[in-house]
Design a protein around this nucleic acid. Structure first.
Lengths: 136, 136
DNA sequence: ACCTAGTTTAGATTTAGTCTAAATACAGAC
DNA sequence: GTCTGTATTTAGACTAAATCTAAACTAGGT
């Protein structure tokens, strides 16, 4: 029983607009980790009116701010976005560039490793390697 | 018995130039994780001739390519550089932005966690939190 | 000293992202 | 339902990070 984009934005206190709904909906559907430009390209055609690049950036920043989506930093110079906000990490296939979500539960608990001096609020693990894609 | 910049570049097969030497030397000295612009600002005055921004980028890319330094991605839109190439991770103090190296040994071995499907070549953990700086 | 491939340079260019100020649309009050 | 104030959207200008270009230079082998 997953939430709709509309429900999610309402819960998170983000004012509804058709642009925000369609961007949020797109990010919730895809398992890619698109850049702002990829969001713009994917979403523009789904709206009756023109969609400005500035709106895409405004919206993505607002959604990050509200905790609806997360930024993903895996490569220099481009920010990617992920609607999966559960604590999880990323695996980057160094051959294809494909980015795959790795759930928290797959890792040992490393949060506590740093102890006293470093009060860890959050952490992100990015793996780089070869995806052995012989599985459905 | 740490290597000099000259020795390190020679070992790694990077052709010596005064620009490369001074940039490498600077990165080896500092424990900051400077951006390209910070490298330029810090290093320009140490050279008798003008130092071009393009050279800083060329050099940093060449050094990453040769394994002399590493890129560090902790925040959107800017690439930082680290002359510590031993396997290690980063702690970002969310108050000051200060970035601290966390040695591999401080973490449980998470490399093997992903098993068969994901052949992990490397991984990086970025922690975000509060640095409790009551220690020398 | 010479040669040449690799490097550096200034400046133009590209790309990611932000800013501006005017037009527009949401949502609460009536 | 319509009014109204505030937040959002827009196109395009702008900024910042990084790359490209093509000419000048230099390291280092002969």
């Amino acid at each position: 029983m997953s939430l709709t984009a509309k429900e999610l934005l309402t819960i998170k206190g983000v004012k509804l607009t058709s642009q925000r709904l369609v961007i949020t909906d797109y990010l919730m559907q895809t398992h890619d980790h698109p850049t702002a430009d990829e969001v713009l390209a994917a979403v523009a055609e789904k709206l009756p009116m023109a969609l400005s690049r500035a709106t895409v950036y405004n919206t993505l920043n607002a959604l990050v701010e509200a905790g609806v989506i997360r930024e993903v930093l895996t490569e220099p110079g481009r920010t990617r976005y992920d609607a999966n906000t559960s604590e999880h990490h990323h695996f980057v296939d160094i051959n294809s560039g494909k980015i795959i979500d790795i759930p928290q539960e797959m890792l040992p608990n490393i949060e506590k490793a740093l102890g006293e001096k470093y009060k860890v609020r959050s952490y992100t693990v990015t793996f780089y390697g070869d995806l052995n894609d012989e599985s459905p």
